[in-house]
Amino acid sequence: MRIIVCVKQVPDAKTVRFDREKGTIIRDGMDAVINPFDLHAIEAALQLREKAGGTVTVISMGPPQADSALREAIAMGADAGVLLSDRAFAGADTLATTYTLWKAIEKLGGCDVVFCGKQAVDGDTAQVGPGLAVRLGIPSITCVNAIELAEGPRFRVTRMCDEGREVVEVETPVLFTVLTTLNTPRLPSLKGKMRAKKTHIPVWGAGDIAADPGRVGFAGSPTKVVSTHVPTFNARREILTGTPDEQVNALIVHLKEAGILS
């Protein structure tokens, strides 16, 4: 089975800092990690390969540093990685991103199953998975919480929806976007890390995937980010002391002052 995982390198939420003046992320000294949802997509792909055989190829569109995200995936057990990196790809919205990923998958010769994280924690759109499925002309099953493999190969898949659980059956080719509740991502192994260090990760630009220059990156993106801002939190904290009665009275005074109680 030819399995593809799409991953995105995102700022590590633990180390990220913001420039309040410009309303942007400070990239210096920031750690980059694999989008947390995508770790579960990688794990799902590895588990499927263990059951059904085949290969797991991880692809990522991003700056040259995204190479490290692909190596991390290989250290976890993926067979190969491809980095889509080109100045022309910069500034891509979800439309241009799905186009670029689609062209890369075409160059790879197609696939049977694609795994994506449900969304990236930086952009939070949750559009790339379903958008890519449209480009590939295959069904997309989003918000996957459980996957069972049957003969065919058929999948019996549980989706978590707002209204409850939905169980669907689907055949390959198919694209899944996964939730973090689907599985527990494995840590890399020592042999995996050693292999990841030695593996050649090809870097493909727009020309390599025969992409139309007008449909990638900023040029291919109808969505323009007009401005960004960093939300401010002015949580004023005060701990009330005294007997419960005194605390209740103090609280009522505060609530009246704030106009919440009249």
């Binding site: 494995r186 192994s189 020592l190 042999k191």
Partner: peptide
């Protein structure tokens, strides 16, 4: 099991 998967037992 985690340690087994990590290859550390074979160090």
């Amino acid at each position: 099991k985690e340690l087994a998967q990590s290859d550390l037992f074979g160090v």
